[in-house]
Amino acid sequence: MLLIPCPWCGPRDETEFVYGEAAIQRPADPHALSDAEWTEHLYFRDNPKGDHREFWFHRVGCHRWFVLERNTVTHAIAGAWPPGEAPPRRKDKA
């Protein structure tokens, strides 16, 4: 069971949340994308074995989306922050 630190509500059980998807950067101007770039954005993922940034939704809490950085092997959570904001500095990384 994950203990997820919602940026607004604090640490809560995993069961209160819904996983969204990988926190990919939305294209600034979708109309400017080529077919190949659009395909890459829609379907292709890095799928890292390690730190992964992802969108979560606090379904039975504040009903807000946020970005979570979580390790996909150990499930250790490095931090959570509101979407659009810069991630807080990690203590284990310079």
Partner: peptide, 13 residues
Amino acid sequence: DGYNSYSQRGTLP
């Protein structure tokens, strides 16, 4: 389980 993982262990929910 619902989110990306390589851990080969499941969660309780």
